[in-house]
């Protein structure tokens, strides 16, 4: 049993099929994990959003609206919450996407391409890895100390 006042260290995972109706399942799962972790309440909605954006991108671009499976692994300890998202869709490296010019987005009527920007805004680390024949792996980390990444 975790002593009073000490945030739990834990690992949990979830598998969902690549269907947008499952986004609410993903959000509920991350919400439960975030509540159990030491993540401040003020950051919770943002971390849920970052994961939603990552999973939405996989559903839309990785699996292109087709069938597929997405696995989420949440690892939390007193210093960080890390969410690893695994899929077998088309590889997609977020590092290759530049931050948007929002004024230009509006002028051009562009509706997409904002998810990665949000992930970078919210999380302290966004890292991607891909190996041929193996799954895509996107890792999102939020540090829990007052200094964020410097904690």
């Amino acid at each position: 049993m975790t002593p009073m006042g000490t945030p739990a260290s834990f690992r949990r995972d979830l598998r969902v099929t690549s269907e947008t109706k499952n986004l609410s399942v993903v959000r509920d799962f991350v919400s439960e994990c975030a509540t159990r972790s030491a993540l401040p309440r003020t950051e919770m909605n943002k971390v849920i959003l970052a994961v939603d954006e990552a999973v939405s991108n996989i559903m839309r671009h990785g699996y292109r609206g087709g069938p597929g499976e997405i696995e989420l692994v949440v690892e939390a300890d007193p210093k960080r919450i890390a969410i690893t998202i695994l899929d077998s869709g088309t590889k997609f490296d977020p590092d290759r996407v530049q931050d948007p010019d929002m004024g230009e987005h509006i002028r051009q009527g562009r509706k997409s391409g904002l998810g990665i920007f949000l992930m970078r805004q919210i999380m302290d680390e966004v890292s991607y890895s891909f190996r041929e024949g193996v799954r895509n792996q996107l890792r999102l980390v939020k540090y829990l100390g007052p200094g964020g990444a410097e904690a």
Partner: peptide
Amino acid sequence: DYISSAGAGVFIGAIGT
């Protein structure tokens, strides 16, 4: 209760028109 970039994108895409 909740909006993601897909939701906000609808307004971004439409306000110009």
